[in-house]
């Protein structure tokens, strides 16, 4: 891609995408009794919050934001989460993976690649049961990963939260069928058709606040498998993995134990967009959890992951 076409794509957000997503938000509020918005603190779920605000303005967002706190989040993400809930006046529900571990429902992984990414499904399913949520809105996009590319906008899950790729309902035009049996629930993906670039362009056009870790900063990191990992008390380091300081930012924000940083000086959103456009690696390429196997995502979704 030449530089001129890169420049062309900055700030070119197709507005129709926003209209479609707002329509989906309103369908969720209307079709379900107890919906919730799964909030991770990353840019995609921040985008969802903005869309929900727009959908119901001047009314309030008619469902709570739910955060499954793994305990391994970046502190900046947690700070941002609390700020955003206050700012929007939305109800915030937080549930902790640590509690699931203490209750013996989830078991901490061991070894140098240990993370709590898989464990959060347990806490999520418990939370859905606790509040009897019948619809959970998530920020997954189809361009992220090949199993996600197969998702419907209304994705029906059984009693155990499982996704059955072979039994998906036809989804025609913009008509969304949210009818479910008792015990089933629906995962809803309002930004299914957005790409990573669309999200960034939207954040720019809307002048949205995002957590500071998306911008360049100094951080202690280690190098592992050709990637930079944030050093933290949760990371199981080997003897030869010595932390050093680097100028980095995060392209995607998951747990500290499974999100890699990229070296970058970008402090402005335009520069971030340029970096994304010329990047050779996809967004998910920085998610260590996806690298476990060829079908890592599909398998996690079958287990109730969003």
């Amino acid at each position: 891609m030449t530089n001129s076409t890169i420049k062309d794509k900055i700030g070119q957000f197709p507005r129709k995408l926003e209209d479609e997503s707002i329509y989906i938000m309103r369908e969720v509020a209307a079709q379900f009794e107890r919906p919730a918005l799964l909030f991770s603190g990353g840019k995609d779920s921040i985008t969802l919050v903005r869309l929900a605000q727009k959908a119901f303005f001047p009314g309030k967002i008619p469902f709570p934001l739910v955060h499954i706190d793994t305990g391994h989040n970046f502190p900046e993400t947690i700070e941002f989460r609390d700020w955003l809930a206050k700012e929007t006046g939305a109800e915030l529900i937080v549930r902790y993976v640590q509690d699931s571990i203490n209750q013996g429902k989830a078991k901490e992984e061991t070894g140098k690649y240990a993370s709590r990414n898989v464990l959060q499904t347990v806490t999520l399913l418990d939370t859905i049961e606790e509040f009897k949520f019948d619809a959970c809105i998530g920020g997954a996009r189809r361009d992220e990963e090949k199993a996600r590319a197969k998702e419907r906008i209304f994705s029906v899950r059984d009693d155990f939260g499982q996704w059955d790729a072979k039994r998906q309902r036809p989804e025609l035009f913009d008509m969304l069928n949210g009818r479910i049996a008792v015990g089933e629930n629906v995962r809803v993906f309002p930004i299914s058709n957005w790409t990573e670039l669309d999200v960034w362009n939207y954040i720019k056009e809307e002048k949205m606040e995002i957590p500071s870790i998306y911008f360049s900063h100094q951080r202690q990191v280690i190098e592992r498998d050709g990637m930079l990992w944030a050093d933290s008390e949760y990371l199981n380091k080997e003897a030869d993995e010595i932390p050093f300081e680097a100028t980095v930012r995060f392209r995607t924000v998951g747990d500290m134990t499974c999100t890699a940083a990229v070296e970058s000086d970008a402090v402005e959103i335009d520069v971030i967009i340029e970096e994304i456009l010329s990047a050779e690696i996809s967004e998910r390429g920085a998610r260590i959890d996806d690298k476990r196997s060829e079908a890592a995502m599909e398998k996690r979704k079958q287990q109730g992951y969003f």
């Binding site: 189809r142 361009d143 090949k146 199993a147 590319a149 197969k150 790729a165 058709n193 790409t195 079908a295």
Partner: peptide, 20 residues
């Protein structure tokens, strides 16, 4: 992208994919 699709070498469900 599905396991079953790769096994059988056929498409079973719609995939959405993007470029600009």
């Amino acid at each position: 992208g599905l396991i079953a699709e790769r096994e059988q070498g056929i498409t079973i469900d719609v995939a959405h994919i993007y470029f600009s």
